[in-house]
């Protein structure tokens, strides 16, 4: 088994859904996702959204801070899962994406922990 990180690009938290009912429904769906993930054993860390308080330190030590203009390169949140291989991890990402509804999930394998490579 290997560990993978999901990096959520763009708006993946479904925060744009406005009505309280929709929000409650969304919350419930995420709760179920989390419980299933823990039960089935693939969800190692539900992670966290990454707030708008952000900055990028560049090689010349210049800093772009505040809400980042190039929203495309900003990561909105992360999750850590365990899967047999990257294909299986992508299947889990699809399950997560169904809830997020928009944006994109980048799937990346951890380097250090992959004992059997």
């Amino acid at each position: 088994m290997s560990r993978f990180m999901f990096l959520q690009h763009g708006d993946c938290q479904g925060q744009t859904k406005s009505t309280p009912e929709q929000q409650a429904e969304g919350m419930k769906a995420w709760q179920a996702w989390m419980e299933d993930g823990k039960k089935e054993g693939w969800l190692l860390d539900p992670g966290s959204p990454l707030g708008s308080e952000a900055a990028i330190v560049r090689p010349d030590l210049s800093v772009t801070d505040g809400p980042l203009v190039e929203a495309k390169e900003v990561v909105g949140g992360y999750t850590i899962v365990e899967a047999e291989n990257i294909d299986a991890a992508c299947e889990l990402a699809k399950r997560t994406m169904k809830l997020a509804g928009s944006g994109r999930i980048e799937v990346r394998e951890f380097a250090c922990f992959g004992e059997e490579e």
């Binding site: 190692l44 860390d45 966290s48 850590i80 250090c112 922990f113």
Partner: peptide, 13 residues
């Protein structure tokens, strides 16, 4: 987040 830390400690070696 809090239980994540203890999880990674053993693995980080």
């Amino acid at each position: 987040m809090s239980d994540r830390k203890s999880e990674t400690d053993s693995d980080l070696e």
